Simulated scan of single mutants.
Amino acid sequence: MSQTVDRALTILPLLAEGPASLEQVATRLDVHKSTALRLLRTLHEHGLVYRQQDQRYRLGARLFALAQQAVEALDIRGIAHPHLAALNEHTGHTVHLAVYEQGEVVYIDKVDSRYPVRMYSRIGRPVAITVAAVAKLLLADLPEPERRAVAESLDYPRYTPRSTPDAAAFLAELARVREQGWACDLGGHEESINCVAAPLRGPDGRVCAAMSLSAPNVVVSAEELLRLRPLVLRTAEVIGAELSGVQPAPGLSPAPGPAAAPGPAPVPGLAAAPAPDLSPLPAPASAPAPAPAPATKGATR
Rank of each mutant, 00 (worst) to 15 (best):
L39G: 06
A283V: 09
A169W: 13
P143A: 07
P157E: 11
L233V: 14
G257K: 05
V31C: 06
V232I: 08
Y107T: 01
D204H: 09
A172W: 07
P199M: 05
R114Y: 00
G78I: 13
D155H: 14
R206H: 12
R206E: 08
E17R: 15
A168N: 07
L281T: 01
A260Y: 07
P294N: 03
E152I: 05
P256E: 00
V220W: 03
G92C: 10
P268T: 00
E152W: 09
D112T: 10
I108W: 07
C208V: 15
A151E: 09
S192T: 12
A168I: 12
E146N: 11
F64Y: 14
Y107F: 12
G240I: 08
A236R: 03
A291Q: 08
L171K: 09
P13W: 13
L43S: 11
V5A: 02
R51Y: 04
D141G: 03
E191K: 08
S113I: 05
E224R: 14
I123W: 04
P254L: 08
R178P: 01
L43R: 07
I129G: 04
I123H: 01
L142V: 09
A265W: 11
Q55K: 09
G181N: 11
D30A: 14
H96I: 04
R206N: 12
I193G: 07
R229H: 09
L48T: 07
L225T: 11
P82G: 02
T10R: 10
E45D: 13
I79M: 10
I108K: 09
R28F: 10
V131H: 06
A299M: 06
P258T: 07
G103Q: 14
L138F: 14
A283M: 07
R158M: 13
T160S: 12
V106H: 13
C184T: 03
P165H: 14
P294E: 01
A265M: 06
G188F: 05
V111A: 10
G269R: 08
T300K: 00
G92R: 12
K110D: 02
V127F: 11
V117F: 10
Q3N: 02
L252Q: 11
R178M: 02
A80Y: 14
Q24P: 05
L243T: 01
A295M: 02
R301K: 00
H189D: 15
P276K: 02
A61H: 13
E242H: 03
E101W: 02
H32Y: 11
P203C: 04
E89M: 13
R234A: 14
A8V: 00
R28L: 09
R56T: 15
